[in-house]
Design a protein around this nucleic acid. Sequence first.
DNA 1: CTCGCGATGCCCT
DNA 2: GGGCATCGCGAGG
Length: 213
Amino acid sequence: MDRTPLTRDFFDRPVLDVAPDLLGRVLVRTTEEGPIELRLTEVEAYAGEIDPGSHAFRGLTPRNSVMFGPPGHAYVYFTYGMWHCLNLVCGPEGMASGVLLRAGEIEVGADVARTRRFSARHDRELAKGPARLATALDVDRALNGADVIAAPSGPSGPLSVLHGTPPPRDQVRSGPRTGVGGDGAHHPWRFWIDGDRTVSPYRAHVPRRRRPS
DNA sequence: CTCGCGATGCCCT
DNA sequence: GGGCATCGCGAGG
């Protein structure tokens, strides 16, 4: 496995080039309890201000400001009152595009991840879904804006991405994004590794009705 | 394995 | 005040 860190230039490309190219890459999370390494198996592209599904669609806000910054940084948001999700900012500064990390296989530190993901029945469920992935890697808003480009000698900060072993191109599949409705629903901007058991199940967008009071 | 539903708090209109 | 880039649980096949 190639443990060379990905460079800034890797992320400074159009999001639809970066997103599928992240499959098979290795995310390294350094925690006090030890390292966790995750091989990415499922991602989604969010194309900045032109994309109705993107948090950046309505322009710069306090929450999404990291997306408007330079590539190669973590954008972490809080959702459904309980969960965090982790994105990697890509494209040139100002494009506000990013890749949501949806699922992966934990290759190192499954025991550490399990201390937070104790309800997972199999190891392959530890990071099967974006909020599970963030929980397993102990990612919260404290890491919002963190630089994920490691020094050439290896990971130094809390989060970094290594080259890993990308799958053959014919094993990369694409389809509609999970849980995205409206005008952004039909874009096939979700990418995953065909047949991988850690990929999360597809769920179509469901508009919610207000609970009777 | 699938489906249905409630939890929960922050963001933005 | 509506909606959310979700998850875990319980019931049923």
